[in-house]
Write a protein that binds this DNA or RNA. Sequence first.
DNA 1: CCCTCGAATGTAAACGGTTACATTTTGCGG
DNA 2: CCGCAAAATGTAACCGTTTACATTCGAGGG
Lengths: 379, 379
Amino acid sequence: MPSRPDVRSNPRRRHRAAAATIHDVAARAGVSVATVSRVLNGKELVRAETSRHVRAAAKSLRYVPNVAARSLSIRRSQTIGIVLPDVHGEFFSEVIRGIDLAARAQGYHILVSGSHSDPSQMLDVVDTMRGRVDGLVVMAPDVTLAPLDELRARAMPVVLLNSATPNGDAITIDNYGGARAMMRHLHELGHTRIAFVRGPEHNADARERLRGYRHAMRGMAAESSRALECSGDFTEESGFAAGRRLAALNPRPTAVFAANDSMAVGVLASLMAAGVHVPEQMSVVGFDDIPIARYVNPALTTMRVDIAELGRCAFALLLDAISNPAVHAPRHDRVATTLVVRKSCGAPNVRPKQNAQPHRAERILKNGRKRVPEKGEVS
Amino acid sequence: MPSRPDVRSNPRRRHRAAAATIHDVAARAGVSVATVSRVLNGKELVRAETSRHVRAAAKSLRYVPNVAARSLSIRRSQTIGIVLPDVHGEFFSEVIRGIDLAARAQGYHILVSGSHSDPSQMLDVVDTMRGRVDGLVVMAPDVTLAPLDELRARAMPVVLLNSATPNGDAITIDNYGGARAMMRHLHELGHTRIAFVRGPEHNADARERLRGYRHAMRGMAAESSRALECSGDFTEESGFAAGRRLAALNPRPTAVFAANDSMAVGVLASLMAAGVHVPEQMSVVGFDDIPIARYVNPALTTMRVDIAELGRCAFALLLDAISNPAVHAPRHDRVATTLVVRKSCGAPNVRPKQNAQPHRAERILKNGRKRVPEKGEVS
DNA sequence: CCCTCGAATGTAAACGGTTACATTTTGCGG
DNA sequence: CCGCAAAATGTAACCGTTTACATTCGAGGG
């Protein structure tokens, strides 16, 4: 028995046409709001006929539930947050695409915030997302452990992407495995004197790639590899400088493994400037398979990282953490990389051909028509 | 006089530590929830001392307002939606970056949804965003007018990006002006026989660029330009095919203007394959300034589009529409483009040098070290 | 014909804020 | 010391859902 009539029952909507509410639908269908809610969420028992009436009413009123009211009530927003640093555009968009696709399939929305330079700014953003999202995917490859722990204290499921990961949920590229696979490829071609161009000291990806390189060098029983390492910072310029230093080495390395593609492109340019022929005199390989890797001359052999897959995995992990907070056990998944063989490496110690010109023209043609040869290119 | 005690007053929070609410803060500060709200939103008069107490209480409880409750109450989400087609990654991420930066500065969040192939899917997404966002930035360059009008009927501020725009708010690239500026550049170099590679028939950007080309050709009092137009669809392959046709023309055009950079890259590749030297025998220019434009050989002269600026403008316009729904008048803004002169065009009818090799090596070096020369490159 | 029981539906209390309006304090002239 | 307007604060309705609990309805058994 109502102690007071429902205040919202009859004359709503003042002047400008407001959106229909669940009360409007209930009135139109001649049922209570509870029944409308039940029908629309499909969880409980409702007579088939009643259900039809409600659906018809909802459709005729173009009813769309108010998500704010819904999340307030169920304390879930069906939205996840993505926090990114000011990262290279291509990578950035691919990660978002991967997460977006996976999320939409599960009825989740994504709230994006990019371009954060420092940890405190990152934490600020995370705070403003509080309540707006059910969980976070955070990418912070250069951030040290302390702020990341702070982040976990935010009492919200968080999945870290490519970050230094002491504990908790995380997804990373299999940098170590990829580096070893690349080294195996070079070794099979006959290389043993392989140089390496390092990435930034504190970058998690860079460290793992270096670790893979060193491990492989030890395994090949080669000379101490430290002399063959060059510093770099993931930029093309640093690769250019490294290439110059490597070309001057005596004896010269027969192959160069750059910790990422940008630096490999720089190495390529400086070797060409120094008159060192690639791949005849020296092989060059990179890591990432960025889009321009296939456009440089010669096209770059590299380890492809499936970035969209990275996003998909991150969402899957986050969803599990959100859905089963009780039983969820923190996990650290690694996504595999793929070797992409192009033209920038061959067997060591091959004499350069005398008339390289027509040869090169042909290469450029192939670069230009990328799509067709690209299909069967992956090995 | 309370007809009934406030039910939420005392014993909240059952077992797991829930986030603090405004009631907790009020209790801690010894004031009412209204006062807390006033302090935190800073709109109304509150004694300085009271304000201090409230702030201290909020901080000590790590209070973060529940945004769902807030948006339900004020009927605003402080969030805008971005709906994108499955567009090239670089463009995609730049648009988001531009909007994100502008939005965050105004305290807005962004909800992103990409990868929509058809109009109905796009409208679905827009419906699920209903109530979640205060307005939308929609990019749909290939969508025809009808669905766009449907979109506007959604009773939410909408800003269209690079779309066919009959009416309503919109931001577009100044494709027409950019095309004319490019034509002026070619004309100043001495070209009059300029070919054009068109984009997709129904694409709004492509049509405007074509319009600029035709207008300029008429202005140059050149022969009827239709014979110099080639069809294309914005892909590299179509550019390759167009280049082949153009090389076979007699008399040959002295310059080719491709409606976008991807096609220009294709043209470049096919001309090289046909033994036509660029820029000595034929100049090639594009539109967009995509990242690889500076890596191709020779580096491509093109019209740069500041995509982030596009995003900024879109947000500014949307914010105005959201904030002043009454007085806001629909606007259609155009963002300017910038001519970027690189190596792919020169004066017509110059004989190719005999030993192009050292010359080319030097070019590649410059490409490799992009950043430094890039600084002063824009004209 | 009454009682019981389960299915179908209704009622109203949350969810956590904002804000119109009511009430209490304050400051100040008389 | 009173009265009164302005300033400061409190009260509770309201935003639109979900959902625990209450109620109604029908059918079947005794």
